[in-house]
């Protein structure tokens, strides 16, 4: 086990370096210029732009820039944004709480829907409940978030005027009022993301439970005279949830990555909106840092999922 973990960790290093090279080159080769707004302003002399490019080292060859970035990254220096001239790690840390709150609770909501509905539907396949749950699940994950988001805004903010549609990370009120305000503004983005994710997870949970529920040991458990509740909860769900747990775990990086479109619609200041505005402004250090952090998380979560899988299902051995 220890050997296996060590080997997996060692394999992760070259793949991370590979990822960073690919990311850096692609971003560096992409067209555009962080000082584009300066370029269209006739009052700013061209030398100012040239000077800035020189100062930020944009005129060096890609390989030189990569080595410089990589060595300072190793020392914990993530560079600074060309646009705001703020350190990239500060920018990312500022966005993490909101991202975790909004995306995290939407994933939680998705789980809260997917688990009971999926399991219940699987125990009564092709019943009315199953049919309805299936239909709703399909609707949930086939509607794009940019559509449901705007639809919710139209209904709840504009027609009914119940909920605000501009998300503000710092709200001036205090105490319970503060909690309520946060809750109110988070309802729509969390619902949009949670329902879409919940839809696809419901389908997945249902399928996983259906696979298990037909197995012989479940029939054995039933013939022992155990109550249906105990059979489902203790024998079926436990085994069925092993693949589901892995799936949920692999979803973790997405929580940090934010949800670009939904964040844009509701003006949620999360990582996703940081990334998209950095991309639009050609702010390379921020783009690279955010995407690189995400790739690290993907690699890490994959690895952890593998380890956890073995722990959940002892039949899997490490070699």
């Amino acid at each position: 086990m220890g050997k296996y973990v060590l080997r997996r960790l060692l394999i992760a290093i070259p793949s991370l370096i590979g990822i960073s090279i690919v990311l850096f080159t692609v971003v560096a080769l992409a067209p555009g210029d962080p000082f584009e707004e300066l370029a269209t302003n006739p009052n700013i002399p061209a030398e100012v732009r040239a000077n800035l490019r020189l100062k930020f080292g944009l005129d060096d060859p890609v390989a030189v820039r990569y080595v410089r970035w990589f060595t300072s990254m190793l020392q914990g220096d993530w560079g600074f944004s060309f646009v705001s001239r703020v350190d990239v790690d500060t920018l990312i840390l500022q966005r993490i709480p909101v991202t975790l709150l909004v995306i995290g609770s939407s994933q939680l909501l998705a789980l809260l829907i997917a688990l009971p509905v999926g399991v219940y539907a699987a125990t009564r396949p092709y019943s009315v409940f199953d049919q309805i749950a299936n239909t709703l699940a399909f609707i949930g994950f086939s509607l794009p978030t940019f559509f449901t988001g705007i639809l919710l805004i139209l209904v709840f903010s504009i027609w009914l005027d119940w909920l605000p549609f501009v998300y503000r990370a710092d709200i001036a009120s205090t105490g319970w009022r503060w909690v309520w305000d946060h809750f109110k503004q988070a309802i729509m983005p969390v619902a949009v993301l949670g329902l879409a994710q919940g839809g696809s997870w419901t389908r997945y949970v249902r399928a996983a439970v259906l696979d298990v529920i037909r197995l012989d040991y479940v029939t054995t458990a039933r013939s022992k005279g155990l109550s249906e509740r105990v059979v489902v909860v203790k024998h079926v769900v436990r085994n069925a949830l092993i693949p589901v747990a892995t799936l949920v775990f692999l979803q973790m990086p997405a929580i940090f990555g934010g949800a670009i479109i939904t964040e844009q619609i509701f003006r949620v200041p999360g990582i996703g909106s940081l990334l998209i505005s950095a991309i639009l402004a050609n702010d390379t250090p921020v783009i690279i840092a955010v995407t690189f952090v995400l790739s690290c998380l993907v690699v890490l979560c994959n690895f952890t999922a593998d380890v956890i899988y073995g722990w959940l299902d002892p039949r899997i051995s490490y070699r």
């Binding site: 067209p31 555009g32 370029a39 269209t40 006739p42 639009l280």
Partner: peptide
């Protein structure tokens, strides 16, 4: 983001104007 960039390698920037006619807003 390409059109208004000063990317020397890209042929589609407005300052190169490798085209017959072009249109944009200039700010004074």
């Amino acid at each position: 983001s390409v059109y208004f960039s000063s990317d020397v390698a890209n042929p589609d920037t407005y300052t190169k104007f490798f085209c017959d006619i072009q249109m944009y807003t200039t700010t004074m």
